[in-house]
Nucleic acid binder design. Sequence first.
DNA 1: TCACCATTTCAAGTTTTTTTGAAACCGCAA
DNA 2: TTGCGGTTTCAAAAAAACTTGAAATGGTGA
Lengths: 108, 108
Amino acid sequence: MEIPEEIEDWIESIGGMERIIGNLPDEKSLENRSRTYKALSDPIRLKILHLLSMHPLCVCLIKQAVGISDSKLSYHLSVLKSAELIKGVRKRNWIIYEITEKGLRYVD
Amino acid sequence: MEIPEEIEDWIESIGGMERIIGNLPDEKSLENRSRTYKALSDPIRLKILHLLSMHPLCVCLIKQAVGISDSKLSYHLSVLKSAELIKGVRKRNWIIYEITEKGLRYVD
DNA sequence: TCACCATTTCAAGTTTTTTTGAAACCGCAA
DNA sequence: TTGCGGTTTCAAAAAAACTTGAAATGGTGA
């Protein structure tokens, strides 16, 4: 396999392809990061995240703001929650969702 | 619809639900952001991004580092490229991919 | 206990993304 | 030209994500 000279020199200088490959993040952390990004990869979910960055809210108000069906909202909340971007705490009849530290890093 | 008192007060204080909804990012920018995140939501693509953050590389070397088939690699490169996280420039027989400014913001 | 409200769960259907292998493309050198 | 290496494109199949409406859950107050 031929490769461009400039690149070949760089690889040489850095200690070979093995070294380069060794510098890549491990599978585990790539998986983790990609899972977070997947949770963020939907406009509805980004909207919810923004909303919750202003103040914790019950599902019924999130629903009012986002304008989708209960079960659809519930699905998206669960995606954000398993990515630990939001968390929900029960309060009487409601579940109040709030953004996490981690979630906050992805808004604005 | 009943809602928790503390939340009701907050909504009141900020000028009502309409004001809150008005503060959300517009659909367009939510779509854009979610599209970027979608491109980042795969471990293979994150790995490629990391790799290219070290140095521009031809497809054949990316392939060596990532260890997947040509067409699969090409697919993932195209996803990263349409999100403008990387760009490719032709050089003789090769196409050299390099990370963009934007791409750089998402590595490390 | 019962009925009710807010919310989640479930299963089925739909859409989108990813994988695969074969075929095509493109520039170059013989 | 012709052939070749490097890379992309294509179409079909597989897998994953999303949507839908109906049914279930779980706490609460009567």
